[in-house]
Write a protein that binds this DNA or RNA. Structure first.
Lengths: 107, 107
DNA sequence: CCGGTATTCTGCCGCCAGGCTAATTAGCTG
DNA sequence: CAGCTAATTAGCCTGGCGGCAGAATACCGG
């Protein structure tokens, strides 16, 4: 896998299981067991997904007794936003053109 | 690889070579040769990258004689934006908290 | 039709990703 | 300490990715 930060973040996001985990963590902190519950996956597999998310800085883990509650960290999403924003101009530009075309057709 | 739309888009973006290709296409259309020029990669490899980008709907290709000029398509980025936006609240929320903390410390 | 240029297709390789099981670590509790 | 629960580590598959070389396809120009 590519080893630059943005690639690592995008790779972490490019899996529906991991995105679901992030969505769950958007509600509140959760233990690994709690995160694993909705899935038909064994614990080590979920643990592996969490490690990918941690490597991307999207999840941090603390220790409370034998539990390791996970927390969502949104900082890396800034880079993703920046990437997409770079094309927003084009995006809007083309929508503008489309709008113009539609207006012309309506006349 | 996961086969849902968003995962396919994010996977396509999760490679620096492909992001560079997209950046180049942000300027103007370009042939495969032109796209390959900046890289130390063989043509079939670049062609493969383009196929990944096409599968994600990020690039479209037309035919002009023996050239197949590539064009950037930004529509799939909307889903990425939506994904990130889902966490914007948290992001700003935490920044607000950080701001408050900083303000308190300054007093 | 032939030769040249642009591009893709086919096969090959090494490596990493995502899944599993089994074993191990870490920490509470009796 | 013994035993329970939570979580990770180690090791093993399978499949897909990113790279290559070589062959095939597509199209122009003479």
């Amino acid at each position: 896998m590519a080893s630059d930060r943005l690639s690592i973040t995008l790779t972490a996001l490019a899996d529906p299981t991991r995105r679901q985990i992030l969505a769950r963590l958007g509600q509140s902190e959760a233990t690994v067991m709690e995160l694993a519950a909705p899935f038909a996956l064994k614990l080590p597999t979920v643990s592996k997904h969490l490690k990918v998310l941690q490597r991307a800085g999207l999840v941090s883990q603390s220790r409370r007794a034998q539990w390791r509650p996970c927390r969502l960290e949104v900082a890396p999403l800034a880079d993703v936003t920046e990437l997409v924003e770079r094309y927003r101009n084009l995006w809007e530009e083309r929508h503008d053109r489309l709008d113009q075309l539609l207006n012309q057709l309506q006349k």
